[in-house]
Simulated scan of single mutants.
Amino acid sequence: MSDPRWEDLAARVASGVGLVAVGMAAVWAGGLWFHILIAVICGLMVWELVSMLDTARSASQYILGAAAAAAALIAAEIPPGFALPLLMLPSMLGFARMERRAATYAVFTALILLAGYGMMAVRDDFGLVWMAWLVLVVVVTDVAGYFAGRMIGGPKLWPLVSPKKTWSGTVAGWIGAAVVGILFAKATAAGPGLAGISIAVSMASQIGDIGESALKRREGVKDSSHLIPGHGGLLDRFDGMLGAALFILIAGQIVGFPPGVQ
Rank of each mutant, 00 (worst) to 15 (best):
M98K: 03
D125F: 13
D125W: 14
L9P: 06
G230D: 13
D3I: 12
G220D: 15
L194K: 00
V221A: 12
W130A: 00
A72I: 05
I38H: 04
V139S: 15
M1D: 14
A56W: 11
V137L: 00
Q253V: 06
A178R: 01
V13H: 02
P159G: 15
S205C: 10
P155M: 02
G233S: 06
L246M: 09
V179L: 07
A14K: 07
L157W: 08
A185Y: 01
G176N: 12
F147H: 11
F238S: 14
P4H: 07
W158N: 02
G208T: 02
Y105H: 02
A66E: 15
F247G: 05
F34S: 04
T55M: 05
A56V: 04
G31M: 08
I248H: 01
K216V: 15
A66L: 13
G243N: 13
W130N: 01
G191P: 03
A132G: 15
A67F: 01
Y105G: 00
D223E: 07
V46D: 08
A14C: 13
I152C: 05
R97I: 02
A68F: 13
Y117S: 08
S168T: 07
S224C: 05
R57P: 06
A244T: 05
V221N: 04
V171Q: 14
G30T: 14
L246A: 13
Y146G: 01
G169R: 06
V129E: 15
T109M: 03
R218Y: 03
L234P: 08
V221I: 09
G193Y: 11
I78M: 03
S51D: 14
G18S: 10
P229R: 00
A121Y: 04
L234C: 08
I63P: 07
T109L: 01
G23K: 03
V27M: 09
A10R: 15
Q253C: 09
W6H: 04
